[in-house]
Amino acid sequence: MISDITIGQYYSGNSVLHRMDARMKLILTFASIVAIFLCKNFFSLGLMVIFTVAATLLSCVPAKMVIKSLKPIIVILIFTAVLNIFYTTGGDTYFKWKFIEITEEGVNTAIFMAIRIVSLVVLSSLLTYTTTPTLLTDALERILSPLKVFKIKVHTLAMMMTLALRFIPTLIEEINRIMNAQKARGADLETGGIVARAKALIPIFIPLMISSFRRAYELAFAMTCRGYTGGEGRTRMKQMKLRVSDFIACAVVCALVGGIIALNIYFEAVI
């Protein structure tokens, strides 16, 4: 059902990763995702995997949750692996039958791509598991704040994102409620062809739009009444502060990138 979707999937806890400064976490996650694509051989890739596993263990998020975040990409994973095995050729041939040919390079590329995609998803979900959506957008706002010189309204963008995230559960609830009401009037949402189904969505979509607009107006009024005037001169209740542990984390990621580059130079590239 719709309510199974988890967005802003924060897993509350008090691990090292949870306590880390959100800005640093965001930047380091980005850096380590870039590092994934720097790996050129199995040694550097191995280092990357060790880093990913270590980060997962440090976050104290149960392995079950992390694996759950991989569920939606299983199809993509299998698809890319299969494509790579069959379409990349080079090196020794392991298997050949008519036009199907499996080669060393094909297998290597498939393994590489699979591990890269998995680490990418795991690292980015670790970020959302250990950081609340509010903190995340807050961090994003601060990181992007230099863009203000280009007249980009960073604060407004961040506020829009915060509000959008905040209202996702509300909207899901609303959709459920409207769906139930229309089902009670005999609306059939499950059967029929594509056209029939698209048509069946109208009785859900229109009330949803109307109530969303109403909500948006109400929210805007409420914010105005509480003195919201945009980002200008707005102070924060929670100050973000970098601590020693954040610099240690930064050093670790720098070491990771350095290690990967060293291993790339030292060992032969396979991809």
Partner: peptide, 25 residues
């Protein structure tokens, strides 16, 4: 079944059509 605040389930362009939604189904 008539839910709390049923007015939020109205969607047709006329009241007549909206009332007819159930019987049409």
């Amino acid at each position: 079944l008539c839910f709390q605040y049923p007015e939020y389930q109205l969607f047709e362009d006329t009241v007549f059509k909206d009332i007819a939604f159930g019987p049409k189904n």
